[in-house]
Design a protein around this nucleic acid. Structure first.
Lengths: 155, 155
DNA sequence: GTGGTGCATTAATCTAGATTAAGAAATGCG
DNA sequence: CGCATTTCTTAATCTAGATTAATGCACCAC
């Protein structure tokens, strides 16, 4: 198992990168984060010794996250493989969904979260009461009702 | 593979339950959610056909989530097993961490999130600038500084 | 039909946290 | 060392979304 040493400040992965790797931290400290459209940084995860850092996305999607080095670190680098085992593939999928959800909760406004939800799960929107969608988005039903009507007014 | 049919409104799992199962949705619609200390409901996930619902925690921990039935559903029920394969175990772990993170972001105030972070990752707190912790918590450095000093004042 | 229960909407008010700005403290670097 | 950069704090103001409350609807059960 070959490992590499990386220096503080080094950037291991950028948003949009393809062929991203999986990093197992043997020592030191990494972090993964996004930068949103307004230029704000949102840390997704700190990775001390023993943690794994990677985009929780399948190997063929471009990265959502930046990964950089907070403290000089020793890493084991692994290739991502397209997951063949269906059970494992489902787990990778779930991780991806949750990663997107966390980023959404940290960086998007109520209306942006709503639009994203409608685009991602158009069928669910039809099937559950609006208050449940609000609950999923982390806002109150009143707030959802309000932002939706404001959104309609501005167009 | 034996499957069961469950009715709308039926509760399959409650917060605190042990020996929870994994549900694969063949048809219908489930949801998983928490209820926080203030009695507010936060939906963690909707599960339509093809999705898996379960607490993303290892088999021996009590459940964080309620699971109930939104539309009459047909389910395949599986026992959770204590994951022997270390790679898989890590993935289950990551799912658990992200689940907790999502719930935290949806239901806790800035100071509560900070306290939880300090308790969960005491070493990280020492090693990174406060503005990065703020970024991880989804708040601004100014807000973190403020709530910390308010918290200190009230004791 | 009537009454009840849950859901959506609107409006008024409130508040946690964002934004902006400035200064002080800490850290790093030539 | 001394200068520059980053970090932290405080304070004033602003705003997205929470809270509270009232109204109208739809859907059921009886």
């Amino acid at each position: 198992m070959d490992s590499i040493t990386v220096n503080k400040g080094q950037i291991l992965q950028r948003k949009g990168d393809l062929n991203t790797k999986v990093y197992l931290v043997e020592s030191g400290l990494l972090r993964s984060y996004t930068i949103d459209e307004k230029g704000r940084e949102h840390i997704f995860m700190f990775a001390p010794k023993g943690w794994i850092v990677a985009d929780n996305l399948s190997a063929d999607e471009p990265a959502d996250l930046f990964i950089d080095v907070l403290e000089e670190a020793v890493l084991v680098v692994k290739e991502k493989q397209i997951e063949s085992e269906p059970h494992l593939q489902k787990m990778v999928n779930r991780l991806g969904v949750l990663q997107k959800r966390v980023i959404m909760l940290m960086s998007a406004s109520a209306i942006e979260r709503y639009e994203h939800f409608v685009n991602t799960y158009p069928d669910i929107v039809q099937r559950v009461p609006q208050r449940m969608i609000a609950s999923y988005l982390g806002i109150t039903p009143e707030a959802l009702s309000k932002v939706k009507s404001e959104w309609l007014a501005n167009r």
